[in-house]
Design a protein around this nucleic acid. Structure first.
Length: 673
DNA sequence: CTAGGGTTAG
């Protein structure tokens, strides 16, 4: 209905001349600001605007539409200042995050307003005034003020906190994090004293608070004591356990709720999907998302950005596309969270152009949207595009954050834009006031390393204002591999082994550097250390999507149903590659000897298995997209180049950092990674 | 016929 139609409709219902008893009802359901102004004008014209009920309703309606100036005018012009009006204005300040204004208004109300049009004597705040402050502060993220408001209601207001105030203050307390546990416990005490600790809302808020303060034990205790199955408290329990990394327990409880017939809603399902995604259980998340829809629960604008990273992580492009279709059908393309997640999904699934199309069509963007797109370009090695987009971000007056600079610096370091990288590292600090964090230094080490300036990279590390972590030394070690610098590699490795003694990948990398220099003593020494420490190379794992199904392939695992055909194809590929001059490289040195003796096929890296499966399961010319959990090795990288050439396929492999697009025997990374 | 609350989120 257009506004003018709505106006006609409403005016019929307020029966002229406007009735002071009907106007508040009309205002309560008034759908738009112009209509509220029209009703206001009608009230003034007929002389009922001074009625305290009409004035309060007008005040609330204006605040509902965010028309603060109109609201203020109504309040200032009202002949009597009631507690209703004061409360509404104070709550409005609080929910805008204007704590000073809210507290000032509270004092003014008690003192009495003697200004022009003032109503004389002071007015004491009531429970609703205080709760309005608590709620407003909570919504605007002013958690401390919210708790103060509740305490003052109890202390100087001599009012007993009720269900509303306690629930709302608990919610605010959770936002303060673990240190606020004492405040949370005090609020729990209020709930006990007020006799509302078993109230459904209070229970939910308590579970939420304890969950956010890291007290998994208390969550379960409060839930068990409440003894009735309220869906909101079940949801709070799931979210709370998930937040505290109790993934298997969360999943078990969720299954139990399903079995007990708890009427789970879209929030419940969204929470459990999010739980899986945040804990690396992507395939489970995909399955639960499917199950949710089978149960007749429709995903909303929160569910979609929760589940999309799961599709992105396993490169389930078809699932991602069908989610995109759903988004279009439901009109969710207006939601900035949904679109940012779509941009990220397409980029991580290898469709950087589709990502850009979504990005360009977005009605509005926030810093996350820009970061997703810039990060996407970085991941694809398209540094020029990343840098160009960063420039337009600044032109659009969007403030970059530290994630933005991580993306920009990563793009520069991967593409060898050494000068630009240096410039952005300086600009970040001087023009944008962002001091570099660990990840920025890691990018700079990679940047310098790529340019062959290994000593400069080492100096940067020693001059860092804080203790470098494993990523930093890992970047240096990676650069040493490319440039064959054994001396510096030893230094980097020594630090890495100290910081990450259990990370097998570091030992493998060092061993490969020795092997490339034929320093077999070093290779054997590293192998012995690994054996002593009981470290096994992390199992390589790759995913490939074929005809809507995601296949997972593990190195050294022959359980895939198509294994015989895969083996056959690999043999063929090996023969063809060798005929074309392919020489296997050194990365095999750390494969278990026993495994290799059993059967060569068990020593094949997972990405080769995935590509072989892709080649035999799709028609000639179909591009293949593979995702891998580890960094791609030299041997596979070289093999992929050959295969892309003689099979005439585009093959993209996303490893831990970036995309490798293989085509006609070449890789988009220019052989540097 | 006027004022207040809880759970999911890049």
């Amino acid at each position: 209905m257009s506004h003018s139609n709505a106006l006609a409709h409403f005016l019929r219902h307020v029966s002229f001349p406007p009735d002071p008893h009907l106007l508040p009802t009309a205002l309560k359901s008034c759908p738009a600001l112009p209509l509220a102004r029209a009703l206001h004008a009608a009230a003034v014209a007929s002389g009922v605007a001074g009625d305290p009920f009409v004035a309060s309703s007008l005040l609330h309606t204006y605040l509902r539409f965010g028309a603060a100036a109109d609201a203020r005018a109504v309040f200032d012009g009202a002949p009597q200042k009631t507690v209703v009006g004061w409360s509404a204005l104070a709550a409005a300040h609080a929910s805008r995050g204007d704590a000073d204004g809210a507290w000032r208004l509270l004092e003014k109300m008690r003192r009495g307003n003697n200004g022009p049009g003032g109503g004389g004597g002071g007015v004491e705040p009531n429970v609703i005034t205080w709760n309005g402050l608590v709620s407003g502060f909570n919504r605007s993220g002013r958690a401390r003020d919210a708790v103060v408001a509740l305490a003052r209601m109890h202390g100087e207001g001599l009012l007993r906190p009720d269900v509303t105030g306690v629930s709302c203050a608990l919610s605010a307390t959770g936002d303060l994090g673990t240190e606020a546990i004492a405040v949370g416990e005090q609020l729990h005490g209020y709930a006990v004293k007020a006799g509302c600790r078993l109230d459904a809302c209070v229970v939910t808020a308590l579970i939420d608070m304890y969950g956010k303060c890291g007290r998994a034990d208390e969550i379960v205790r409060v839930f068990d004591e409440s003894c009735h199955m309220d869906v909101a408290s079940c949801n709070a329990l799931i979210a709370g356990l998930s937040r505290n990394a109790q993934v298997s327990e969360t999943l078990r409880l969720f299954r139990e709720f399903v079995a007990q017939g708890v009427e789970l809603n879209v929030v419940s399902w969204t929470s459990i999907v999010a739980c899986c995604v945040q804990n690396g259980k992507d395939l489970e998340a995909v399955e639960l998302f499917r199950e949710m829809q089978a149960q007749g629960i429709e995903p909303n604008t929160v569910t979609i950005p929760c589940v999309l990273p799961a599709f992105a992580n396993v490169a389930a492009l078809m699932h991602g596309r069908s989610a995109h279709c759903f988004v279009v059908r439901k009109g969710f393309l207006l939601d900035v969270y949904v679109c940012s997640a779509l941009v990220d999904m397409y980029a991580k699934c290898g469709r950087i152009r589709n990502a850009r199309t979504i990005f360009d069509a977005m009605p509005s963007r926030n810093v996350v949207s820009w970061n997703a797109m810039i990060g996407g370009y970085a991941m694809h090695g398209e540094a020029k595009n990343a840098v160009r987009l960063f420039d337009s971000m600044l032109m659009c007056k969007q403030k970059p954050d530290m994630v933005t600079f991580t993306c920009v610096l990563a793009a520069c370091s991967q593409a060898g834009l050494t000068e630009e990288g240096h410039r952005y590292f300086k600009e970040m600090q001087h023009d944008h006031g962002i001091s570099p964090r660990m990840e920025h230094y890691a990018c700079m080490v990679t940047l310098l390393g790529r340019a062959g300036k290994l000593d400069e990279a080492y100096n940067l590390i020693t001059e860092m204002p804080f203790e470098p972590d494993g990523c930093i030394w890992g970047s240096l070690l990676g650069s040493c591999r490319v440039h064959g610098n054994v001396d510096l590699a030893d230094v980097a490795a020594e630090n890495l082994f100290r910081l990450e003694p259990g990370n097998a990948g570091n030992y493998v990398l060092l061993s490969n550097i020795y092997a490339s220099k034929k320093m077999w003593d070093g290779v054997n020494r590293v192998r012995a250390t690994m054996k002593d420490m009981g470290l096994k190379k992390e199992k390589g794992c790759s995913w490939i999507e074929i005809k809507n199904k995601v296949h997972m392939l593990l190195a050294g695992d022959d359980s895939h149903p198509m294994m015989t055909a895969i083996t056959e194809k690999l043999k063929q590929l090996n023969i063809e590659m060798r005929r074309l001059g392919f020489a296997p490289s050194t990365d095999f040195v750390l494969h278990d000897v026993e495994e290799q003796e059993k059967d060569d096929i068990l020593a094949v890296h997972s990405e080769k298995l995935a590509v072989a499966l892709g080649l035999i399961s799709t028609s000639p010319g179909t591009p293949l997209r593979v995702i891998k959990n580890l960094r791609i090795c030299d041997d596979c990288h070289e093999a992929m180049k050959f295969i892309s050439g003689f099979e005439g396929r585009e093959i993209s492999v996303r490893d831990t950092n970036r995309f490798h697009h293989f085509r006609d025997g070449k890789c988009s990374c220019g052989d540097y990674w």
